[in-house]
Amino acid sequence: MRNIRKENLEGLAFIGPSILGVSIFVLIPFIDVIRRSFFNAAGTGFTFLENYQTIFHNAAFMLALKNTLRFMGICIPLLIAVSLLVAVFLSSGLKLAGYLKSAYLVPMAIPVASVVLMWRLLFHEHGFFSGMLNHFGIVGMDWMNTKYAFWVLVFSYVWKNIGYNIVLWMAGLTSIPDTLYESARCDGANAWQCFIYITMPNLLPTLYTITVLAFLNAFKVFREAYLVAGDYPHESMYLLQHLFNNWFRDLSLDKMSAGAVVIALMILVLILGLQRSWDKEI
């Protein structure tokens, strides 16, 4: 009995500092955030769901939420499909596959701030992209101030995250035992059948991780959007983080707390939902 107690204390001593910091900077204040989401901005009167009603009737919140969801709905499937395709090719015994994989990882090491210069020159009204289109008789524009700005974000997200995902897929692919393929081939399965009936089902756990991490990184695309277009970008790339910055500047803590709770809940539901559907499959 005493021994178990001592072991528990030792374990606690190891994780204690970390737990303490996490509690002070995230957990405990988040409880306060939940409380605040039910109070008015000054924190003096209990308003129950009023803040939630406010943000869901707030045009800026709905726009930011719509853009963020649209962004994720397009980017994540695109990224997952493209990176899976490249990973399958790279794993098929291609020469120099290791070097190619490294090359795909390079964008991870390029700070957003450095590459913003290139984006600005590329998508300027008289920039490289407009110049290229000019050859085909298409008139250029200030791309970052049009609805195409959204696609620039999509492009830069895929560019930045493709290497990360390729590495994850390749790890998943190597974990599938070769004997599975061999016996399938003995039974007369062709390459496509092998892919559908062996590769795909065995990659499901990887798909879970990739999807969750892709969501996490999708929130970070604000960095590009902010650095290229500042506080008030074209409305097609007005994201949740822009709105939160505006709220923060006005100290609208009531709306911010309701917004934070809503997003936290959505992510929690997503994680648990994905986990459950994958657990069922396996």
Binding site: L216, A260, I263, I267
Partner: peptide, 16 residues
């Protein structure tokens, strides 16, 4: 917590 974006933790951090 690792999967929560900055929008979620921003206000918590600020309060502390």
């Amino acid at each position: 917590l690792m999967l929560m974006p900055f929008q979620v933790t921003m206000l918590s951090n600020y309060l502390t």
